[in-house]
Design a protein around this nucleic acid. Structure first.
Length: 460
RNA sequence: GGCUCGGUGGCAGAGUGGUAAUGCAGCGGAUUGCAAAUCCGUCAACGCCGGUUCGAUUCCGACCCGAGCCUCCA
C-alpha cells in the first residue's frame, strides 16, 4: 500500500508519515476562540484537516482527533463586557454556532473537543513544572516563559531570538526578562474572570491551553498538529516550547499549516469589510458548495475566494450529482475507501485538486456507462471517493430541488407545467413548449429533455 | 530589516530532470423539434536573466513582481 506523505512545517519538506502507534493515530487541530461567527477562512483548516482525518481513519482505523474550543480569552471578555453578560454566555452561544457551521460544511465532529476552562488545573500544573525546571518565572503577578532557557526556541518557525529582537515592533513589558518571553498566566482584575493560582487570581495565556489539553487527552507525543499558517508563530512555537520543556518528549511529529483564504484578492479583514462568515454564505450556497470551493486549491496555497469560485464549485457539484441522478436505482459496487483514486491523490500531502480531478474522471465514466456493472463501479468510485472528501453526501434529486417552493413555483406546479409542455410538444406546439420552458427558466428552474422524459433542476 | 512562501494557457488550478493533469470559458461535431445536459474532437501556458545538465518549467544563483509572519489574527 502506498504511504501518506505530508509536508512538515518543521522540516520544510514532504515526509513519509509514520505514526507513533498505528493502532491509535493522534491529531490535534487548533479550534476557534468563540467570540464571533466563523468566517470562510476559519473554515479552511477545519475542512482540509477533516479530509486528513477521513484519510487517516480509512488507512489506520483508530484516529483520535482533538479540536479545542478556546472559551477564555481577552476577546471573549471584551465581547461579554460589550454585551453586559457573562463570558460563558458568549462562549456557549458561539460554540454552538461553530458546531452548526462546521456541520454544514460536512466536517465530522472531532473525537474530542476540549474546552480551555475545563483544564485550568492541568494548565497550572504545567506552569509549576516549567518553573521547577527553570523554564519559567513569576514577575508582577505574571508567569512567563523564558525563551532563552530553550536552545531550540524558534526551530519550528525557522527564526532565532536575535532576528526577533531585530524585528521587534512592540514595546516590551517591563516585567519580561527577554522581549520574546510570553505569558503563561496573567492576573485578572476583580471585574475580569479568573481562577485562583499559586500566583494569584488570574487566567491562562493563550498558548498554554493547547499544551495542557494535548497532554491530557492525546498523550506525550502526538502525530499531527495542524492549523492555519499564522499560528506557526508565535502560537505553535510557544506551544512547542511549553510542552518540550515541561516534558522530555517529541511533542509533535508532523506540523501542518494551511495557507490563507483571501476575499476578492484581498486579505479578509474587518477594516476592509470583506469578511464573509460561513453562516452568511450558507444562506446562498449549500454547505457542500462552500466545502468544494475550499478544496479546489491545495491547502498550502493561498485560496482566493469569490462568488466566481463558489459558482464554479456549484457547477462542478451539479455535474457530479447530474451523473448520479439517472442511476439512483443501481446500488454502488463494493469499494473500500483506500482503493479509490481520491485516496491515492490525497496520499500526496492531501492533494485535493488532484482528488477532485479523479472525481471528474469518475463522473465521465459514469455518464458513459451503459451496463449495470459499469454503472455500479463508477458510482462507487464517485461516492466513496466523494465521501473521503466529504462531498456528494446528498440525494441527487434533493440536491437539484433544493430551495424550491421557498420562492417561485412549487414542485407540484413545476410538474404540472412539465406535463402541459409534454402535451404541447407531442402536438408539435413548440411555441407553447418553449414558452413554458422560458417561463420556468426565468424563475430559476431549468428543464432537461431526455429520452426518458423531462427532468428539472433548480438553478443557482 | 529578519524569516517563510509563491509567480503555469483567457480564468481556476495540479504536476514533473526528458516533449505540462483537471475544470470553466472558446471553437468544431454528435445528440435534440430547438435547447439544456451529456459525449467526441480541438485551440491555448511554465515571470526575467544566467549556471549545472545530453536535456530545466522542474535543481542552483541573481533580478523583477506578489503574499504572509515577526508576541495572542485560521
Amino acid at each position: 500500500m502506498a504511504d501518506l506523505k505530508v509536508y512538515n512545517t518543521a522540516s520544510g519538506v514532504k515526509e513519509a508519515f509514520t505514526p507513533v502507534d498505528e493502532g491509535r493515530v493522534t491529531m490535534y487541530v487548533c479550534g476557534p476562540t468563540v467570540y464571533n461567527y466563523a468566517h470562510i477562512g476559519n473554515a479552511r483548516p477545519v475542512v482540509v484537516f477533516d479530509c486528513l482525518y477521513r484519510l487517516l481513519s480509512a488507512r489506520y482505523g483508530n484516529v483520535v482527533y482533538a479540536r479545542n474550543i478556546t472559551d477564555i480569552d481577552d476577546k471573549i471578555i471584551q465581547a461579554a463586557v460589550e454585551r453586559n453578560c457573562d463570558i460563558g454566555e458568549v462562549s456557549r452561544e458561539f460554540t454552538t454556532a461553530y458546531r452548526e457551521d462546521m456541520a454544514l460544511l460536512n466536517a465530522l465532529p472531532p473525537s474530542i473537543e476540549p474546552m480551555a476552562t475545563e483544564h485550568i488545573p492541568e494548565m497550572i500544573a504545567l506552569i509549576e513544572r516549567l518553573i521547577e525546571r527553570g523554564h519559567a518565572y513569576v514577575e508582577a503577578g505574571h508567569a512567563l516563559f523564558a525563551v532563552e532557557s530553550m536552545p531550540s526556541y524558534g526551530a519550528l518557525s525557522h527564526r532565532n531570538l536575535d532576528d526577533m529582537l531585530a524585528g521587534a515592533r512592540v514595546k516590551v513589558a517591563s516585567y519580561k526578562r527577554h522581549s520574546g518571553d510570553f505569558v503563561l498566566w496573567k492576573p485578572s482584575s476583580p471585574a475580569e474572570p479568573g481562577w485562583e493560582s499559586p500566583w494569584g487570581r488570574g487566567r491562562p495565556g493563550w498558548h498554554l491551553e493547547c499544551s495542557a489539553m494535548i497532554r491530557a487527552h492525546l498523550g506525550e507525543s502526538i502525530d499531527i498538529h495542524a492549523g492555519g499558517r499564522d499560528l506557526i508563530f508565535p502560537h505553535h512555537e510557544n506551544e512547542r516550547a511549553q510542552s518540550c520543556c515541561a516534558y522530555d518528549d517529541d511533542f509533535v511529529r508532523y506540523w501542518m499549516h494551511n495557507a490563507y483564504v483571501d476575499m476578492d484578492g484581498e486579505k479578509m479583514s474587518k477594516s476592509l469589510g470583506n469578511v464573509r462568515t460561513v453562516r452568511e454564505l450558507g444562506g446562498s450556497y449549500p454547505g457542500e458548495v462552500m466545502r468544494f470551493a475550499l478544496l479546489t486549491a491545495h491547502y498550502r496555497s493561498p485560496l482566493n475566494f469569490s462568488v466566481e469560485v463558489l459558482n464554479s464549485a456549484q457547477d462542478a457539484l451539479d455535474a457530479f450529482y447530474g451523473a448520479l441522478r439517472p442511476h439512483t436505482g443501481i446500488d454502488p459496487a463494493e469499494l473500500n475507501a483506500v482503493d479509490t483514486a481520491v485516496y491515492g491523490a490525497l496520499l500526496d500531502d492531501i492533494n485535493t485538486p488532484e482528488a477532485i480531478a479523479t472525481l471528474y474522471a469518475a463522473a465521465k465514466t459514469l455518464n458513459k456507462a451503459s451496463d449495470t456493472k459499469a454503472i455500479a463501479d463508477a458510482k462507487a468510485e464517485l461516492l466513496v471517493g466523494g465521501t473521503l472528501l466529504g462531498l456528494l453526501s446528498e440525494d441527487p434529486e434533493a440536491w437539484f430541488q433544493r430551495g424550491v417552493g421557498q420562492e417561485g413555483p412549487t414542485a407540484g406546479e413545476i410538474e404540472a407545467l412539465i406535463q402541459e409542455r409534454l402535451l404541447a410538444r407531442s402536438s408539435r406546439d413548440f411555441d407553447r413548449a418553449d414558452e413554458i420552458r422560458q417561463m420556468l427558466e426565468e424563475q430559476g428552474v431549468l428543464l432537461d429533455d431526455g429520452p426518458d422524459g423531462t427532468q428539472w433542476r433548480r438553478r443557482g
